[in-house]
Simulated scan of single mutants.
Amino acid sequence: MANTTQSDQQVSLLRDTVVAMVRRDGPDLSARQLGVFLTCYLQDGAHTVRGLAAHLNVSKPAITRALDRLGELDLARRKVDPLDRRSVLVQRTLKGAAFLRELRSIMGEAATVARTEKSAEIVRAPVSRRASAG
């Protein structure tokens, strides 16, 4: 039951974050675009189209389409690898770093609201239920 509750809370946090992202003025990213973006920004090291495709288990054309959109939004850019001209490196941008900060802020706010709601729910719960929740 505790795992289900924790999973439900995580899914609710994801929902609240996605809803907040959709409501604000800014780019809407698909799940694939967001996955590519977060992989590039949260995992250290150089990222290539080939490497991202392997890591995310999707085709190189799918990564290319996601990068096309991220490039249009200036959230990432592609550059030919000077050491291997057949390879394309994905670079972070200042706008992408700002987008990640905004995403973290939105998630933090959603998590705070969720904790506040959970605390209020525990306070409102009958004494017998409160004892089993702790």
Rank of each mutant, 00 (worst) to 15 (best):
Y41D: 05
L75G: 02
C40S: 09
L42M: 14
G108N: 11
D16P: 00
R23I: 00
A133R: 12
A2I: 09
L73S: 02
S119T: 12
V36C: 08
A53I: 11
G134H: 07
R78S: 14
R115V: 11
V18I: 14
F37Y: 09
T116V: 12
A20M: 02
L75F: 04
T39S: 13
S119Q: 13
D28Q: 11
R23V: 00
D25V: 06
R78E: 13
G134L: 10
T64Q: 12
L89S: 06
V127F: 09
I106R: 07
D44L: 12
A131P: 00
I63K: 02
T116L: 08
I63V: 15
R65A: 04
D25L: 05
Q9R: 10
Q10T: 01
R65S: 05
H47Q: 14
G26L: 06
V90F: 11
A111Q: 13
Q91T: 10
D16F: 00
D25C: 02
V19T: 11
E72G: 04
L29G: 06
A125M: 13
R50V: 13
R85Q: 13
D16E: 11
H47R: 13
G108L: 07
S119H: 09
S12N: 07
Q33D: 09
D25M: 02
T17D: 01
R124T: 08
G51V: 09
R69V: 12
R124I: 03
V18S: 02
L52F: 12
R65G: 01
A133N: 03
V18P: 00
G35Y: 00
V19E: 10
A62R: 04
D25Y: 03
V49W: 04
A2N: 06
Q91M: 15
D74V: 03
G35L: 02
S12T: 08
S119M: 12
A62H: 03
Q6M: 05
A54T: 14
R92F: 03
S59D: 12
L83M: 06
R32K: 12
I106E: 01
L56Q: 07
